[in-house]
């Protein structure tokens, strides 16, 4: 299997290799957009198209000293923000059926949660709380716990210092805990 750096170099010469890059990241970025926003599939696809077109245009600007993943996640993050600014919209209401149960992993250990809540309902509650957090906290929580990104990757995606990423994650967990406990 070709590395991403190889695919980038090949994509500059032949678009069929770019299609391979799209296929590698389509599902991951789709999930990332959903974690950030809870948009419907049509809007998610619109954003994804914008992301990959931006990637296509800026392939020569990709710096190989960073991971391709961090670079494409950064573009995706910016496109989601841009989408909400254009639409002047907020993330949509959440149906428990649409929620990834991975959200349950975000719950801090010492949070007091009613035991009778089903997993799907719990995940929906957590996702709602996450989407209500200020953008800077939501972004780091999603990247750290749902996308499994390291602090260095979070730093590169959000263009913040590594130390700041760590501080924001801790503060985000506290904020989330206080939202879930109310």
């Amino acid at each position: 299997m070709k590395s991403e750096k190889q695919l980038v170099e090949l994509s500059l010469k032949d678009d069929k290799h770019f299609a391979e890059l799209v296929e590698r990241y389509e599902a991951k970025l789709s999930r990332y957009i959903f974690h950030l926003s809870s948009l419907d599939s049509a809007s998610t696809e619109d954003i994804l198209q914008e992301v990959f077109i931006k990637v296509y245009e800026n392939l020569n600007g990709y710096d190989t000293s960073f991971s391709f993943s961090s670079w494409i996640y950064r573009i995706t993050h910016n496109e989601v923000i841009s989408f909400f600014r254009k639409k002047k919209a907020r993330p949509q209401a959440i149906s428990p059926d649409d929620v990834d149960e991975d959200y349950i992993t975000l719950i801090p250990d010492d949070t007091d949660i009613p035991k009778e809540l089903k997993r799907k309902e719990l995940a929906a509650k957590v996702k709602k709380a996450v989407l209500e957090l200020p953008e800077k906290y939501r972004d780091v929580l999603v990247l750290r716990y749902l996308e499994d990104k390291s602090y260095q990757e979070i730093s590169d995606i959000l263009k913040i210092s590594i130390n700041n990423a760590s501080v924001l994650v801790n503060r985000a967990k506290e904020k989330l805990k206080s939202k879930l406990t109310i």
């Binding site: 500059l12 678009d15 770019f18 299609a19 391979e20 799209v22 296929e23 389509e26 696809e45 994804l48 198209q49 990959f52 077109i53 296509y56 245009e57 800026n58 392939l59 020569n60 600007g61």
Partner: peptide, 18 residues
């Protein structure tokens, strides 16, 4: 999606920035 994107790139004559 890949097919859609490549068609859009071709139709709009989008190029890689130098």
């Amino acid at each position: 999606l890949a097919d859609k994107i490549l068609k859009k790139v071709k139709k709009a004559n989008i190029k890689h920035k130098p």
